[in-house]
Design a protein around this nucleic acid. Structure first.
Lengths: 115, 115
DNA sequence: AGGACACTGAACCGAATGGTGCAATGACGG
DNA sequence: CCGTCATTGCACCATTCGGTTCAGTGTCCT
């Protein structure tokens, strides 16, 4: 039961990659075009090592693709389209709607006296 | 130096709450109706203490609402509709599309107008 | 060649996670 | 009142996380 979702590992990695505002910022930045580790680190006042780790997390989740170019590493948005992540949230939304329906039915029943 | 961006913890909390398959299972289970801590813990072979912690995480993210009823605690889906979480993912999808456009508009242009 | 530059690997650190077990606490049934 | 039941608070533990520093490694510039 409850098998409408893909591998948990994938979803785990994607959601935990998104669960950090620095990493969400990185994705937003990369939406404007490729950037190096240094260019990503600068605005966050973070060391290059720290930024490398964040990029690695995003890369493991498939959200970012990187390529070593000369002495710097070019980072760009990856192939992961978050369809699975979105699908799961949609699924949850549907559950929520259903729960709402249930509640409304309950109240309607109460209001309608008898039973 | 302390991390000084702690204000959009809403998204942080939601995504990190979702970044665990046990907690996603809990949400799915609660979609079928309210349950006690014990009923939630059973199928996962987890201690009540452990399950209480997971539920607490979900509750802090607004995804679950709980209420003490007699000696047990009733858990149900919460008020958080994941609209923000969904919106952010949609935003990322748009960035991705735009990146695709940039890369492939060139080829699309050369192929002429189909569609 | 020699030096500056961009990143990376490793070791380290404090805090947070995900889990356990045990001892309360509080409600229920008799 | 007493025993049982469901949950919870606390202490503990191992692992991961987000970040650092420091010492390389490899590339670019002159």
């Amino acid at each position: 039961m409850v098998n409408h979702m893909v591998q948990h590992d994938t979803l785990d990695r994607i959601y935990s990659a998104l669960a950090d505002s620095t990493r969400r910022d990185i994705l937003t930045r990369l939406g404007e075009g490729p950037a190096s580790i240094g260019e990503l680190a600068g605005p966050h006042g973070m060391t290059l090592t720290g930024m490398t780790k964040h990029v690695r997390v995003l890369e493991d989740a498939g959200l970012v693709r990187t390529e070593k170019v000369g002495r710097s590493r070019q980072c760009r948005l990856g192939e992961e389209r978050l369809d699975d992540a979105m699908a799961w949230i949609s699924f949850y939304q549907r559950l929520w709607e259903r729960r709402l329906d249930g509640l409304e039915a309950y109240f309607t029943l109460q209001r309608g006296t008898d039973s």
